[in-house]
């Protein structure tokens, strides 16, 4: 028996918004520690890794490990039927081929339930090596989204260059070029409003704007984003979900032909 109760269904709504354009379907692996998801997009350029801790739920019960293949488009349809502050419960029997999703309003005057068919998905789990990243940039997630959106008007690729002084985002295309430089913030009231850089070695890598913009769909989940980079390895874009877990996106760099 699997059962998880979340006090704010809006959190799961935002999570689905953050992955539905990269993944059509995904396997949710449930265990007593929580719910995990790891899946690549069809082009094998990016990977979504999500972890929701059992302790982040109001109630969480998972007697046996369970892998649920979910069509994300279907789940988005169901999530459209609730309000952000509805309480939601997801439930499945062991070896079930359906998942039940229930919503209740806070005053319990409206209860609804939806049953969704589960799928058998071929799972391809990738081993992600432990990496000591050369640069770790923490910045406001809204600022990162703004830069990705602004610069993708000018070109398909974004160069991210990180040094001790700061981080520079650059692009160029038919109409010209664009650069945005961010320096480490010297004073800030709240940690999430600042830009901080931990660096052991300068790194400069090129990435596809299209994917970065898709990752930015996670912006409503967190005020801060963490970018981790090392030479010639995939970029990690991480959004912490308060008390519940995190979403990490991995993006393979563009390389010289």
């Amino acid at each position: 028996m699997f059962e998880a109760r979340l006090l704010k269904s809006g959190q799961l709504k935002k999570i689905l918004e953050a992955i539905k354009e990269l993944l059509k379907e995904a396997t949710f692996d449930c265990s007593d520690s929580g719910i995990q998801l790891q899946a690549m997009d069809d082009a094998h350029v990016s990977l979504v890794s999500m972890c929701l801790k059992s302790t982040g739920f109001d109630k969480f019960r998972c007697d046996r490990n369970l892998s649920m293949g979910i069509n994300l488009e279907s789940m988005v349809k169901i999530m459209k039927c609730c309000s952000n502050d509805d309480i939601m419960t997801i439930k499945a029997q062991d070896n079930a081929d359906t998942l039940t999703i229930m919503f209740e309003t806070k005053n319990q005057e409206k209860m609804s339930d939806y049953e969704m068919k589960l799928m058998n998905l071929d799972q391809e789990h990738l081993g992600i090596p432990e990496t000591n990243y050369s640069c770790i940039i923490k910045m406001p997630s809204s600022e990162f989204a703004r830069i990705c959106r602004d610069l993708s008007q000018f070109g398909d690729s974004l160069v991210i260059a990180c040094t001790k002084e700061g981080v520079k985002f650059s692009t160029s295309g038919d109409i010209g070029s664009a650069n945005v430089k961010l320096s480490q913030t010297s004073t800030f009231d709240k940690e999430e409003e600042g830009v901080t850089i931990e660096m052991t070695q300068a790194v400069c890598l090129t990435f596809a704007c299209r994917y970065l913009n898709l990752f930015c769909k996670a912006t409503p989940l967190s005020t801060q984003v963490i970018l981790s980079m090392s030479g010639d390895v995939p970029l990690v874009v991480e959004y912490q979900i308060e008390e519940l877990g995190c979403i990490r996106y991995y993006l393979a760099p563009k390389i010289e032909e």
Partner: peptide
């Protein structure tokens, strides 16, 4: 020019 690399050349299937 630059070309897009694949994630599977960095991470191996388990």
């Amino acid at each position: 020019g630059m070309k897009q690399s694949s994630l599977t050349s960095f991470f191996k299937t388990k």
